[in-house]
């Protein structure tokens, strides 16, 4: 890191600490449905407290309520940072109950899940205002240029809050984390597999660096 960049960073983090941060460090895990947010939240919480946060499923909108885990102390390279981790429901602009039926759910179940999913999205959007930082999880096998990603990034930029992009599922052959980097070059990005734990230590370093 260049010296100027370092000074800027120190200045702005000192500025943040004095003027608005206080002691709260609530970090939200955001992203589209199925990106691996809960898998990642579980891994973080398991690595540092030995618990899990919520259930994981290949059916989208598995998480339909935000779950907060308080006081998770993440250690990396001798430094440590204590965060509240909020696993949020996947953000979407559309929810079709027939997609759930295609996954084998009954029509009744699918309608109910669709309804709950819309409430989950609203809850996730409202949580955005109460956070001091966001980990934005993207499935690295998918197109990163989606409105959901653009909206989350835009909100964090507008409020000048730290954002870390996680390019997840790099264990899959067709993953292209470089596409995510070139889509949003202005933000730090770390490629990982939340499932296998690949590169997870680098992510912890980045978390300590950007949310500390």
């Amino acid at each position: 890191m260049g010296i100027i960049k370092k000074i800027r960073k120190n200045l702005s983090s000192a500025f943040n600490k004095i003027f608005k941060r206080g002691k709260l460090h609530r970090i939200g895990i955001y992203g589209p449905p199925n990106a691996g947010k809960t898998t990642l939240a579980n891994r973080i919480v398991r690595d540092f407290t030995g618990d899990v946060v919520g259930s994981v499923s290949d059916i989208p909108h598995e998480t339909r309520r935000a779950h907060r885990r308080e006081g998770v102390t993440i250690e990396s390279n001798g430094s440590s940072i204590t965060l509240d981790i909020v696993d949020t429901p996947g953000l979407a602009t559309k929810i079709d109950f027939q997609d759930f039926m295609a996954k084998g759910l009954s029509e009744d179940e699918s309608r109910r899940r669709a309804k709950e999913a819309t409430e989950g999205v609203i809850e996730a959007v409202r949580w955005l205002e109460d956070l001091e930082g966001v980990i934005l999880v993207m499935d690295a096998t998918e197109d990163p240029f989606t409105q959901v990603n653009v909206t989350v990034i835009g909100n964090m930029e507008a409020r000048n809050l730290p954002l870390l992009i996680v390019a997840n599922k790099i264990d899959l052959d067709d993953s292209m984390p470089s596409r995510i980097k070139s889509a949003f070059p202005q933000h730090p990005m770390v490629p990982i597999s939340a499932l296998t734990g690949d590169n997870i230590d680098v992510m912890y370093d980045k978390i300590a660096e950007h949310f500390g």
Binding site: T93, K94, T118, V125, L128, Q147, G154, N155
Partner: peptide, 14 residues
């Protein structure tokens, strides 16, 4: 604006 985008998502969900 980013805030309008989140409002639009909320309104769409309802």
């Amino acid at each position: 604006t980013p805030q309008e985008e989140t409002k639009l998502i909320e309104a769409t969900m309802t």
